[in-house]
Structure formats: C-alpha cells, structure tokens
Simulated scan of single mutants.
Amino acid sequence: MPPRPMPPLPQESAIHDLVSRIRGLSPSCGPVRLVGVDGHAGSGKSTFAGRLAGALGGVPVLRLDDIASHQELFGWTKRLLSQVIGPLGRGEQAYYTPYDWRARAFGQPHPLPPAPVVVVEGVGAGRRALRPHLALLLWMELPAEAAWSRGRARDGAEQREFWEGWVEAERRHFAEDPSRPFADLLVREREEGYEVLAGPAGTAEPLSPLTDGDGPSAPR
C-alpha cells in the first residue's frame, strides 16, 4: 500500500488559502486578475508582493516605482492606464517604460503579459482610478511614521532630501485619494511571516497567519 500523503502544515495551508482565493476570483482587467498591494512607503509592500507572486507560481509583478517619476510622484494615472491597464483589458501584452530614479529618465519598453494574475505593488495601488480594475486590494498595515522611518533607514543619507518631499506628497495623496478604506484585506508583519485580516471594505474574510515557511504552490 503506498504511503498516505501527510496533511499540510498550518503555514502551508495559510498561503495555499490566499493563493486559492486569488485564483478563484473573477478576472478584473480583461483576462487578468489584478491584485493590488498598497501601503505607506517603507511598509514592506515590495517584499510581500514578491513572496505572494512566488507563491502564485511566479506571476508578474508591476512595481509602481517604475511608473512614477521625480516630476510625477503621484500624477502617473494616465500613463498607467494607457501603457498597462488598456492593453491588459483587451487581453494584449502591455509595454511600459520603467523609470530610472538615478538617471531621472524613462527606459526602454518592458513587456507585461496578460497573465491570469498580475500583482501591482506600490503607494497608490489602490487609488480611485485603479480600483475598478482590481480583483483584490491588500493594504500593508503599518502606521505611516513607522513605515517612513524604516524607509529612511533603508535608503540612507543619500535619499534624505527626496524623503522630505516624498512624505508631504504621500500625505496629500492619501488625504485626497485614500486606499485603506477600500482594502479587502489588511496585511501585518509578524516576527515570522504575516498576518492577514479582514479589511475595511468587508468583502473578504481574514486568513490564518502566513509565515516565511510557506512554500510556493504549483503553477497553474
């Protein structure tokens, strides 16, 4: 008699639940399920989005830092809609021009396929103009001052002047176009992994904690 498979560990079950939920959502932008990961700068969006994308089998991640620029920290809606949302909505491969923050210039077009799931991460991922195209919105639940402090420490003295301007710009953005009230799920960092809670939008139930031991699920 072949050995029976072992039941999944709790942490494996947790990431599997989130992945299953996302895959069970209806497409929100043409054939694509767009999953937004928003939060204050320095709140851990990039790390979480990368782990989520890996658990989903290596799906594409669009980082809004590639869409924004020094001149348009938050005024990039038209560029996102024309370069990314429009083509994906038609089931076509999108091409966006990533911004080089050191060279202060946009680069060559980068492809973004209409994959079954695309993760969009960055400050403003849950903005008003993007929400109708999202299948799910996640908010990194870290207070602004704590996130900004961590971001400043991460970027060092070289970016001190940039951070002074960024904080004021981010305050204005979220005052005029908040994302958190529309989040389906809140994500909190823990000593090991993450805790996922129901968000203010009330459209999704909380999940059991996600830990760093969560292995990626098989691609589908």
Rank of each mutant, 00 (worst) to 15 (best):
Leu52His: 05
Ser149Ala: 15
Glu92Ala: 13
Thr203Lys: 06
Arg21Glu: 14
Glu92Tyr: 10
Thr97Ser: 14
Lys78Val: 12
Glu168Phe: 04
Met140Arg: 01
Ala125Cys: 04
Gly124Ser: 01
Glu168His: 11
Leu73Arg: 11
Leu25Asp: 02
Val123Ser: 15
Glu72Ser: 15
Glu170Thr: 00
Ile67Ala: 03
Trp76Glu: 06
Arg104Thr: 08
Thr203Met: 02
Arg79Cys: 09
Gly24Ser: 09
Asp177Gly: 00
Ala144Arg: 15
Gly44Ile: 01
Phe106Val: 03
Pro8Glu: 13
Val37Ile: 14
Val123Gln: 00
Pro2Ala: 13
Asp155Ile: 02
Gly202Met: 04
Pro116Trp: 14
Phe74Gln: 00
Arg128Thr: 15
Val187Cys: 11
Val120Tyr: 05
Leu9Ala: 15
His40Cys: 03
Gly202Val: 06
Ile67Asp: 09
Asp214Ile: 07
Glu168Ala: 14
Met6Asp: 12
Gln93Thr: 15
His70Pro: 01
Arg131Pro: 04
Ser208Ile: 03
Arg180Tyr: 04
Gly122Gln: 07
Glu195Arg: 14
Ala183Asn: 03
Ser13Ala: 15
Val19Asn: 06
Thr77Ala: 10
Ala14Gly: 09
Ala201Glu: 10
Gly42Ser: 01
Ile15His: 14
Pro111Glu: 09
Val118His: 01
Glu121Val: 13
Ala204Pro: 05
Glu192Ala: 13
Pro111Phe: 05
Ala218Leu: 11
Glu164Lys: 11
Ala49Asn: 01
Pro3Asn: 04
Arg90Ala: 08
Asp17Pro: 05
Pro113Asp: 08
Glu195Asn: 06
Arg171Met: 08
Pro31Cys: 06
Trp101Asp: 04
Gly213Ser: 12
Gln108Asn: 12
Gln11Ile: 08
Arg102Asn: 11
Glu12Leu: 06
Leu197Asp: 10
Pro143Asp: 15
Tyr95Gln: 11
Gly86Val: 05
Glu176Met: 01
Leu80Thr: 12
Glu145Val: 13
Ala103Tyr: 02
Gln83Ser: 08
Val167Ile: 14
Gly39Gln: 00
Leu142Ser: 05
Thr203Cys: 04
